[in-house]
Write a protein that binds this DNA or RNA. Structure first.
Lengths: 172, 172
DNA sequence: GCACCTATTTATAAAAC
DNA sequence: TGTTTTATAAATAGGTG
């Protein structure tokens, strides 16, 4: 329970901070989505945790809103060159987040913290092999996507999926 | 007063929509700010009203967060395409195969057959999210590779790693 | 650590001014 | 139209399993 007026100041305890970050980020994304729905607006929210992990929400997607902001005379010179994809949760996909997360747990077996620990034990050759494993999973996932698109799944009217994912590649 | 459960659907009345947009935008900015304060995180929120007016919040400012997002491989200028390289394993590495497989089981939790079954339950949106999870794993693995190459230091900056593979780029 | 719970704070829709 | 009020819904900190 909220025991007393919630103080807005830095949380020192790491796990508590992480919990709060996750909860409030989800709340923030939901509020952004509600705003977009109710007001027919566009919005993007980009968060960077203290650990440096990036999470972003966008309606209709992150890029159009960011580009709109940048092309409107705002923004520094754009800096490019890195290459990691970010977790972009969008629209209705967001509503299914915890359900989806649960199912994905079934596939991947563990959560981020555990990967961190387990991966920390791997050596170079094992990392190489892990990549092959990841490749394998990705192939299976792509096959599943084909199956759905071909008419076997329930979610065929999901439309605004970003260009970076397993699914849109199949749709090109 | 909020007279009843607030419906999240488009508001047709223009002035009412504008009022709601303003209030919710303020609320959204405040929540983003609180998140940053409490979790020592960075965040930006960019909104575009139906009329096309842009409002943005950023901590520490909009641009650093946007650039961070863009420089992490997101954004329009990212090159896309199938880009996963599999590394051929050589002799001595080969000898370690089953040991490696065991360790990778620790990371990935399941074997091929189980992935097949579990992935078969996923819907489109869940496949999308799974890709984010895969990216996350890959990122952790890349950090580990850097750690090894750098000689044991933890959590080196991973920005120099290429897009195609966890390990090989480090070896260039 | 994650999912669920719930007491309490916080956000906000509409009224009142 | 804008600001303030206020009744109610929504978010969430901390607890539990």
């Amino acid at each position: 329970m909220v025991r007393r007026k919630v103080e807005i100041k830095a949380i020192e305890n790491i796990s508590k901070r992480h919990t709060t970050f996750t909860k409030r980020r989800q709340g923030l994304f939901k509020k952004a989505k509600d705003l977009c729905t109710k007001c027919e607006a566009e919005a993007t929210v980009i968060t960077v945790s203290k650990a440096g992990n990036i999470f972003a929400f966008g309606h209709p997607a992150v890029d159009p809103v960011v580009n709109r902001y940048l092309s409107n005379g705002n923004g520094d010179e754009r800096v490019h060159g890195g290459n990691w994809m970010v977790v972009a949760m969008e629209d209705e996909e967001m509503q299914l987040l915890s359900k989806a997360e649960r199912k994905i747990q079934k596939v991947m077996g563990k959560g981020r913290q555990e990967w961190n620990l387990a991966i920390g034990d791997l050596e170079i050759n094992e990392l190489d092999e892990m990549e092959a494993v990841i490749e394998d999973i990705k192939r299976i996932a792509a096959a599943r996507a084909v199956e759905i698109v071909a008419g076997g799944g329930k979610d065929q009217d999901v439309k605004c999926i970003g260009k970076d994912s397993i699914v849109p590649y199949l749709r090109r």
